[in-house]
Amino acid sequence: MTTTTSAPRTRRGRRARLPYVLLIPAVAVLAVGMGYPVYWQITTSLHTYGLAQQFGQPAPFVGLANYTRILGDERLWAVVVRSVLFCLVNAFLTVGIGVGVALLMRAVNRIVRVVLQVSMLLAWAMPMVAAVTVWKWLFDWRTGVVNWLLVQLGATSYDQHNWFAQPLSFFFVASVIIVWMSVPFVALSVFAALTQVPDEVVEAARIDGAGPVATFRWITVPMIRPVLAIVLLLQIIWDLRVFAQIRLLQDSGAPVSETNLLGNFIFELGIGRQDFASAAAVSILVLALTVLVSWPYVRSLLKEDRS
């Protein structure tokens, strides 16, 4: 800009630049904290990264060799199948139970509803590490409440039963914890949506002879479908990235290689074995999968922004 520019034009110029100036700090921190790691992983996944490179040797470019190697690895596929299964089972369980709890909140009187809502909120508020620690104690083999209760109910084989030794019962405990932690969000969101279904419509359906099940299926579900869809999508996205709960439960002596999910697999490859090229390749695949699965959610948010 030259010095001859008149004052009003300068002000307009400053005004046009202002939004970009306001974005600088956020863009900078995202570039450092997220952008650079993504860039590093892409380049690392396209090069050899062995012991020599750890000590500063140049890394030869190998194209997609890391990807083909990792995609040919049975261990990866075992982890992928396990992760997807675990994710889907937990997401559908969580949404199913959450909708059930939301319907309960609608069906009961005010006092019971408040009790239910407060319990949900307390469970939701528990920090993840604290929640896993408490559940570990509930499932403790020697003095845990769960084993004690099962024995009282007649299942005497659960006396001193170790839940973490077998992969299947390990994942059962992990699912209990994740469903317990995730149901409150679903229940409260769906309940908020249910309160918006007009009573007149439900009443009209009943007068037309629809039973409670038909009313729910043909009136309630279509009206709360947008919330159901988004809640299910978010659960799938969140349950695909379960890492910490598994890591913490593995501390209880579980067979690690048989209980790893995708995040744990990356951790083991990278931090554990220092195989950064493979870890970077798997990370990129996980990021691509996340973007793919989250796309409907991102698009709906973007649509909201445009309106």
């Binding site: 790691p37 890492f243 995040g263 990356i266 951790f267 931090i271 950064f276 990370s283 990129i284 996340t290």
Partner: peptide, 12 residues
Amino acid sequence: MLPAEGLFIAQY
């Protein structure tokens, strides 16, 4: 939406 597990190796 990006999970920490997809980035933490590079961040480390």
